[in-house]
Simulated scan of single mutants.
Amino acid sequence: MTTEPQRFEVLIVPEHAEGHDPGTLSEVALRSALVAATGETGASGYPRFAGEGIVADIDPATRTVEALLIDGSEIDYGLSARVREVGR
Rank of each mutant, 00 (worst) to 15 (best):
I12H: 05
A36T: 15
G23Y: 03
S44M: 12
A61I: 11
A81R: 05
E15P: 12
A67C: 01
G19L: 09
V83C: 10
L69D: 04
E85T: 14
Q6Y: 01
A61G: 00
L25N: 05
L79C: 06
E15M: 04
E40W: 00
E18A: 12
A61T: 12
F8P: 01
Y46S: 11
A81Y: 09
V86S: 01
E85W: 03
P47N: 14
A67D: 14
P5C: 10
L34Q: 11
R48F: 01
A17C: 14
H20E: 10
E66F: 01
E18N: 06
E9T: 15
V28D: 02
E9V: 15
D71A: 11
P60M: 15
V28A: 06
E40F: 08
E85L: 08
L79R: 13
H20K: 05
G45P: 00
I75N: 07
A81N: 10
E66L: 11
I58C: 07
G39L: 11
E9W: 02
R88M: 04
V28Q: 08
G72A: 03
T62V: 06
G39K: 09
H16I: 09
G51N: 05
A37I: 10
L69C: 00
R82D: 03
V13F: 02
L25I: 11
T24S: 11
A36C: 00
I70D: 10
L30D: 11
V65M: 04
D71K: 12
F49D: 03
T3N: 06
S26D: 13
Y77I: 09
A56T: 00
R82W: 09
I12L: 15
A33V: 14
G42R: 08
S26N: 08
A81E: 12
G78K: 04
E52P: 14
S44P: 06
G72N: 06
E74W: 05
E18H: 12
T24V: 15
M1R: 01
